[in-house]
């Protein structure tokens, strides 16, 4: 077991956001966490990364308890996250963003990062073309590629991905999910949170369904894809949900930082 959550409870003030979540991810797997808005998907990922304190329960990574560790320590253990809204640093170039991804690997200079940069540019040739462009000026799809590539720069054993399909056109989503499959084949374990359940279930080996802070189902991804109740709750028209939002060109790194919206 690479990652294991056991009866994890998390509070925002008095509100209980996670009401005892248990889940496991094995080495080499792609596991997805699906569920509607406010189900606790993002909170689960933030809790694993150490951004939210747990009230009770345990989070273990590689058989080591990690709840209570500072986020930067968790990154050093090889557990990285590509956050919700991509979290691209708008004022930094693509190159600098990628170098930020390798921040935890301490003071090594650019030469040491070369193989990693080549790997990321191999997966996302678009990023190589845009390497000296500011992160805030990239399109939504490019920002998503950057966020994933940046997470890989730490040479993680496992990557948490928070809604990589958000705001992207279907074609782009398919492309990015293909690359995620490739990253997994290269040996990185993935935990994927998605509202776009159909796409996520096609990619993943196993899945958990989250509802208002609780895991209500867990099964092989393929089984859920065929399941009538899941279909009606999460797959009804969901495949098309990403369409029509364009590829999110206008969106900055957008996560509430007011400075992120005014791109130079």
């Amino acid at each position: 077991m690479l990652l294991e959550l056991e009866d994890v409870r998390v509070h925002y003030g008095k509100v209980e956001a996670l009401k005892g979540v248990s889940l496991q991810v094995d080495e080499g797997e792609i596991v997805t966490l699906v569920g509607g808005n406010g189900a606790g998907k993002t909170t689960t990922l933030k809790t694993i990364s150490g951004l939210r304190p747990v009230t009770s329960g345990s989070v273990r990574f590689d058989d080591r308890p990690i709840s209570g560790l500072a986020p930067y320590r968790i990154v050093r253990l090889g557990l990285c996250q590509s956050p919700e809204g991509r979290g691209v640093f708008p004022g930094m170039t693509v190159m600098e963003n990628l170098e930020m991804g390798a921040y935890a690997r301490s003071g090594r200079g650019r030469p040491a990062l070369r193989p990693d940069l080549e790997r990321v540019f191999g997966l996302f040739p678009r990023l190589a073309e845009r390497r000296n462009q500011a992160g805030g000026t990239l399109s939504g799809g490019e920002q998503q590629m950057l966020a994933i590539g940046r997470a890989l720069m730490a040479r993680p054993r496992m990557v948490l991905l928070d809604e990589p399909s958000m705001g992207l056109a279907t074609m782009l989503v398919t492309q990015i999910f293909d690359i995620l499959a490739e990253i997994n084949r290269q040996g990185t374990t993935l935990l994927l949170v998605e509202q776009n359940a159909a796409q996520a279930l096609r990619l993943a080996h196993r899945a958990y369904v989250l509802e208002t802070g609780r895991v209500v189902r867990s099964a092989a991804a393929a089984d859920l894809l065929d399941d009538e109740s899941v279909k009606s709750a999460y797959l009804g028209g969901d495949v098309e949900a990403g369409v029509g939002e364009g590829d999110g060109d206008a969106e900055g790194g957008g996560d509430g930082d007011p400075s992120a919206s005014s791109v130079p």
Binding site: S49, V75, P83, F89, P90, G101, A104, R105, G253, D257
Partner: peptide, 19 residues
Amino acid sequence: RGIRATAQDSETAALMGVN
């Protein structure tokens, strides 16, 4: 770079391994 990342988005900076 850690300072700039924290200034731009401290939560993401933490996810990159910035103390």
